[in-house]
Lab assay of single mutants.
Amino acid sequence: AEIMKKTDFDKVASEYTKIGTISTTGEMSPLDAREDLIKKADEKGADVVVLTSGQTENKIHGTADIYKKK
């Protein structure tokens, strides 16, 4: 799966169907969080990951919607 910015995804959204939401939390780098989200998306058969939230304090927390091409 590839990560797309919401603004970029909005241009092609009609080509995809939302298949779920994924999240990651833990003591990790932003890059590790990104890789974890991609891994989870791949496991669910998603083609595209669109980040919906991200937070960093002591731990990273990120959520994303996942989509499959129609």
Rank of each mutant, 00 (worst) to 15 (best):
D65I: 07
V48Q: 01
G26F: 12
E2Q: 15
V12R: 04
K70W: 05
G20T: 03
T17L: 10
G26K: 11
V49T: 01
F9A: 01
E43I: 08
Y16I: 04
K69G: 04
K69E: 03
G26I: 14
A46Y: 01
T52I: 10
A33K: 06
E15L: 13
F9I: 00
K11T: 06
K18L: 13
V49E: 01
V12E: 02
K18N: 05
I38G: 02
E2I: 15
P30C: 15
L31M: 11
L31Q: 15
K44L: 15
D10F: 06
T24S: 06
E2L: 15
I38D: 00
K68L: 08
K18E: 03
K39L: 06
S53H: 13
D8K: 04
Q55A: 12
K59L: 11
M28T: 08
E43N: 06
G62D: 08
I38K: 08
I19C: 06
A33N: 05
K18S: 05
T24E: 03
D65N: 06
K6M: 07
T52M: 07
A41C: 02
D47E: 06
N58P: 08
G45T: 04
R34D: 05
Y67C: 02
A1F: 03
K70F: 07
V48W: 01
S14Q: 11
K11I: 07
K44W: 14
A13N: 03
S14H: 15
T56G: 12
M4F: 06
T24A: 07
A1P: 13
T24Y: 11
T25A: 14
A64N: 02
K70V: 09
K18I: 08
D42V: 15
V12Q: 04
K18F: 15
Y16G: 00
K5N: 14
A64Q: 03
T63I: 06
S29I: 05
K44D: 03
G26P: 09
F9L: 03
L51Q: 03
K44S: 06
K59Y: 13
E2S: 13
I38H: 02
V48I: 11
N58T: 10
T52K: 10
G62M: 15
A46H: 01
K44I: 10
I22D: 00
Y16S: 01
V48G: 01
I22A: 01
I3S: 02
G54P: 15
K68D: 02
V12I: 12
K68G: 03
D36H: 12
I22M: 03
K39W: 06
E35S: 13
V12H: 05
N58Q: 11
D8H: 06
S14K: 10
D65G: 02
G54H: 13
D36W: 15
G26H: 11
G26S: 12
N58M: 11
K40E: 04
G45Y: 05
A33L: 10
L37H: 00
G20L: 01
K18W: 15
K59I: 12
I66K: 01
T7H: 10
Y67I: 00
E27G: 12
M4S: 02
V50K: 00
I66Y: 03
A33V: 09
Y16W: 01
D10K: 07
S53F: 15
A1L: 07
A1C: 13
E27M: 15
T17A: 07
F9S: 01
K68H: 04
I38A: 04
E57M: 13
A1Y: 02
D42Q: 13
A64T: 02
V12W: 04
M28L: 12
D8G: 03
T24V: 12
V48F: 02
D42N: 15
A64M: 09
I19T: 03
A64W: 09
I60M: 12
S29E: 10
R34P: 03
Q55H: 13
T25L: 09
K11R: 09
D8V: 04
K59D: 14
K6G: 06
A41T: 03
Q55F: 15
K6C: 07
T21V: 09
T17E: 13
A13E: 07
E27N: 13
L51T: 04
I3T: 03
A64E: 03
I19Y: 01
S29M: 10
H61I: 15
G20M: 03
S14R: 08
K70C: 09
I66N: 00
A33Q: 09
D47C: 08
H61S: 13
T21M: 07
I19E: 02
A64K: 03
G20K: 00
D10N: 07
D32C: 13
V12G: 01
G26A: 10
K6N: 06
I38F: 03
G26L: 12
Y16E: 01
T25H: 13
E15M: 14
T25I: 10
G54V: 13
I22E: 01
E2P: 03
E27Q: 12
D10H: 06
K11S: 06
D36I: 10
S53G: 11
A64R: 03
T24K: 01
D8Q: 08
D36M: 10
I66G: 02
D36K: 05
K68W: 04
D32A: 12
K6I: 07
K59P: 14
A33R: 09
K40N: 03
V50M: 02
A41W: 01
E15G: 09
G20E: 03
Q55P: 11
G20D: 04
T56M: 12
G20C: 07
V50Q: 01
D47G: 04
E43G: 05
A1M: 06
G54W: 15
D32H: 09
I3L: 08
A64D: 01
M4T: 02
H61F: 13
T63N: 07
K18P: 04
V50A: 01
K6E: 09
S53I: 15
N58G: 13
K40H: 05
G20W: 02
K44N: 08
K6P: 08
P30W: 15
D47S: 06
S23M: 12
E57G: 14
S53D: 12
I38W: 04
E27F: 14
K68P: 01
D32T: 09
T63W: 08
T17R: 09
S23F: 13
S23A: 10
K40W: 05
K40G: 03
G45W: 04
K5C: 15
E57F: 10
A13S: 10
E43H: 08
D47L: 04
A41I: 00
H61D: 08
A33F: 11
T63S: 09
K6A: 11
K11E: 06
F9G: 00
E57Y: 08
A33S: 06
V49K: 00
G54K: 10
E57T: 08
G62Q: 15
T63H: 08
K5S: 15
G45Q: 05
D8A: 05
L37W: 04
E2Y: 14
I22L: 07
G45V: 03
V48E: 02
T21G: 03
E35G: 06
T17Q: 06
T21C: 11
L51I: 14
V49D: 01
D36A: 11
I3P: 02
I19G: 01
A64I: 04
A46C: 03
K11A: 09
R34T: 08
K40F: 04
T7A: 15
K68M: 06
I60K: 09
A64V: 07
K18G: 03
V48H: 00
V12C: 06
K59M: 14
S14V: 07
G62P: 10
E27T: 13
K39E: 04
I66F: 08
L37F: 05
E15Y: 14
K40L: 09
A1K: 02
D47K: 03
I60W: 14
L51D: 03
R34I: 15
G26D: 12
Y16M: 02
